[in-house]
Amino acid sequence: MLIRVTPERLDPGAAIEAVRRDEAGAIDLFLGVVRNENKGRAVDHLVYDAYPSMAEKTMRALAEEAVGRFGLGDAAVLHRTGRLEIGETSLLVAVSAGHREATFEAGRWLVHEIKRRAPVWKKEVWADGEEWIEGPESLGMERAPAAMRGS
């Protein structure tokens, strides 16, 4: 199972080949990509911080759970750290299964759970400032008092 948190550029081909199986008729590949705006504000670049050893442990546990839950052939998760420019890939998730529906469901579930639990953080850097983002899907925000979620 390919699980990696790395400052190196992510290669979608490596993720695909890691999950390819003779018995798997479908592979779903998700790329998280750095967008040039957030909430109407122009983003110059992102900086990702991580707790790499725990992030890999968390991603592996989630990928193993996805294999069992959705009957996958295999799953691969790669997350990049450090400075990323607009258009670069921050997250790769690849899953394989006998048929496509399981891969679509597993891919969606796995990306959501990674955004919820994996200890990784992004900082948005604008022309005139920067801010660490608190993920709305994160377990921390889920547990926070409603007043702190701004909802």
């Binding site: 992030a55 921050s90 990674i114 660490w132 993920g135 926070a144």
Partner: peptide, 28 residues
């Protein structure tokens, strides 16, 4: 997280352990 596993506030922290304080995550 205590030694890389999420832990509640009342969880023990043994001597020599690593306690990580984890603000809301925002990977992806």
């Amino acid at each position: 997280a205590v030694d890389e596993e999420y832990a509640e506030e009342d969880a023990p922290v043994p001597a020599g352990a690593t306690l990580a304080l984890i603000p809301p995550v925002s990977g992806g």
